[in-house]
Design a protein around this nucleic acid. Structure first.
Lengths: 107, 107
DNA sequence: TTCTGTAGTCATGTTTTTTTGACTAATTGA
DNA sequence: TCAATTAGTCAAAAAAACATGACTACAGAA
């Protein structure tokens, strides 16, 4: 039933776009970690010992593309890279916290 | 890096569970359709012409297991099955509508 | 009793995602 | 200068998700 016409079909519904940008094996956890404090690549790998570089690198890139995280080069020694929740990311976090409340209460 | 120990690891974070139960190629759309009115299997297949029975059946089953939809046998003629948003599903919908507002405004 | 519509399941194949392991390249500390 | 740490990339393999086509089973209409 699949045709060529559904390739790269841009999301019509923004919520569906958000769900997609948070879907995958590692992105939800990474997002949650980012809500606590800045992330660094190798530290993240150590926090997610069942994961791997490739997947984490991809997840970070996609979260950045979705504008949920921002990547910064920190000009300190040792020079390094940090990922933080973007403004949009923090806004999403607020909604998720509300959601969490709802999910816990009724059940 | 993968071990056997992460098989069926139950979700620690309820929001991650929700994200998971709404992830996949068809579940978000099905959920949105359900927010408009009752769903029926064959009608859904016709509304999602690039999909297929197998995937839709699986998506419906998983949405039901996640308690976002409820399945009802309608004792009318012709006897048929209906899927509706559960109470939990409607609660989620409320949050998603709020989310939608946020996603549209800042950007 | 045969045909149509309902709501699926099952085995198999294809495609997409995820993992593995080797490799790169810049920075820093000893 | 050597070794370690940081943050990755790449090609290939393995695993998971998705699609296809054949099939089932029941209800109702002609």
């Amino acid at each position: 039933m699949t045709t060529e016409s559904n390739m790269n079909m841009p999301e019509s519904c923004p919520v569906e776009g958000l769900l997609k940008s948070l879907s995958g094996k590692w992105k939800p956890q990474i997002f949650r970690f980012a809500s606590v404090g800045p992330l660094r690549f190798n530290a993240l790998l150590r926090q997610l010992p069942q994961s791997n570089k490739q997947s984490i690198a991809l997840a970070l890139r996609e979260l950045e593309e979705a504008q949920l995280l921002v990547k910064t080069i920190v000009q300190e020694k040792p020079l390094h890279i940090e990922y933080n929740l973007s403004e949009r990311g923090r806004a999403m976090l607020g909604v998720f916290e509300q959601l969490e409340g709802m999910l816990l209460e009724n059940n």
